[in-house]
Amino acid sequence: MTHSQPLLGVELSGTGTHPASWRRADSRAEELFTAGYWLDAVLAAEAAGVDLAFLPDSFAPQVQGAVGRLEAVGIAARAAAATHRIGLIPQAPVTHTEPFHVSKAIASLDFATHGRAGWEVTVSSGQAALFGRKAEQDPAGLWHEADEAVEVVARLWDSWEDDAEIRDLTTGRFIDRDKLHYIDFVGENFSVKGPSITPRPPQGQPPVAVRAEDAHSTRVAVRRADLIRVAAPDLDAAAGIRDELRAAVAAAGRDPRSVSVLIDLDVHLAATEEAAAAEFDQLETWTTTPPKALRHIGTPATLRALLARIAADGVVLRPLALPAFLAQLPRLTPTLRDRLGLPHPLNRYALTA
C-alpha cells in the first residue's frame, strides 16, 4: 500500500499495556467492563486523526494486572455506529473458533462500519483445556491451522458475488442463487462447503493483519496479511525487518506495495519529559517489565520527532497507560501545516528578545 503519510495505529489494550497501569489514579479501571470506557477510547483516537484502532483479544486470562476482558469484535461493533473514519481492527483467535463464525463476524462489522473493518489473526496457545475439544498444538501446528483459517474466511467472503442480492418483487427472488458459490475447501484442519450466510462485505475482503513474531507467524503474514505488525529493538532493526518482510512478500508471489509493515512502539506520554519519566518509574516500581519492543517515554513533541525517523509504512502505538496517553493524543497528531511541511509561524505582534 502506498500512503502520503505513514499509517498511525493505536492498540487499545485494557488500561494500558503495562500490567501496573490499572493502579494509576486516572486508569478508569472501575469502568473497564463498560461500553463507555471503550467508546471514549475509540472516539478519542478518531478525533485525534488516528487511522487504525487495534483491539487485542485472547481466551486466556491475563497473568498480571487487571484480569478479564471483553470480546474485541463486540467492542468494535459497539463503536461502529459512533465512529465515522477510523478503521476498527479487532483480534479474533482462530484456534478454538470456526472460520465460518469469524467470517460472519468480521463481515457484519464491515457492514456496520460501512467498510472500516479489519481482522487481526491470532492463535491460542495453552488454552485447549478451556474448551476441551482438542489437544494442545505446537506453534507450527497452530499457525498452519491459522493459515488454512484465513484462506477459508477469504473464500467465504467471496462466496457471494457483489450483486447477488436482487430483491425482485415480481418474482419473489431475494437473491440470485447462481451468484452464491460453494467454496468446497478441504484442508488438514477444516472441511467447509459454504457458502456464507452473510453477503460479501462492503470492502469485498476486509484487511487482514498478522503480527509476525516468529518463523511460523511470519510465514502466514507474508502469504496472507495486508498489514504486518512487527516489534523491533531499535530504529535500525525496524528498517531491516521492513526490508526483509518486503523481500519475503515478493518471494511469496505478492506485490510488496500491497502490504503495509507496521512497527509496534510502546509509549508513555506526559506534559514534560521529566513527568513522563517519573510516571514510568512509578509503573516499574509497581511491576518491573522487560522491554520487548521500541519504547518511548516523553512528550507528544518528542514522540513526533521519533516517528519521523522510523522507516516503516506505519506505526502502532501501544500506550503503557491508556487514559493518560489519550489525554496527550491531540497534541501528538499533526496539524494541516505540519502535513504541508510548513513551520509554525511567528506571531508578528509577539515581543522578541
Rank of each mutant, 00 (worst) to 15 (best):
E31V: 04
T171I: 03
K193Q: 13
A149S: 13
A82G: 05
G14I: 03
L7Y: 06
L346T: 13
Q64S: 14
R224M: 11
D266E: 12
H84S: 15
V220F: 13
A77Q: 08
Q127S: 15
F59S: 11
A311D: 14
I183K: 05
R133W: 08
D176I: 07
K179T: 03
P330L: 11
L235M: 12
S125E: 15
E11I: 09
A45M: 06
R116L: 06
D184C: 03
H114S: 15
I75G: 02
G87H: 14
S217P: 08
R242E: 00
T198N: 06
G194S: 07
V220G: 11
W119V: 12
G126A: 14
A20I: 07
D168G: 06
R331T: 02
Q127W: 04
Y182C: 00
A251L: 07
T272Q: 08
L180Y: 00
G132P: 15
T97N: 14
T352W: 10
Q64P: 06
H3E: 10
P206M: 05
Q282M: 09
R69D: 02
R28E: 05
A149Q: 05
T299C: 10
D57H: 11
S196E: 05
P291V: 11
P139N: 08
V220Q: 11
S13C: 11
V153S: 08
V210R: 03
H3W: 13
V152F: 01
I175P: 00
G68H: 08
P202R: 10
A140V: 14
F131S: 08
Q203R: 14
A154L: 12
T15A: 01
A209K: 06
V150H: 08
I197T: 14
L52I: 15
P330M: 10
D26A: 04
G132A: 13
V63F: 10
S260C: 10
L235V: 15
L307S: 07
V208S: 04
T17Q: 12
F280Y: 13
L55T: 07
R177H: 02
A72W: 05
D26F: 00
T302Q: 04
A128K: 15
H96T: 05
A135V: 12
H96A: 04
A154C: 12
T2G: 09
D234L: 04
L326H: 06
H268F: 08
P233T: 09
L306R: 15
S108Q: 11
V315G: 02
S191N: 13
I106E: 04
E165L: 13
G87S: 15
L265E: 02
H296Y: 06
D266I: 02
E165H: 02
Q91L: 12
H216L: 06
M1D: 06
P291E: 02
D264Y: 09
E284W: 00
G298H: 04
D168K: 10
P195N: 04
A327Y: 01
E136M: 09
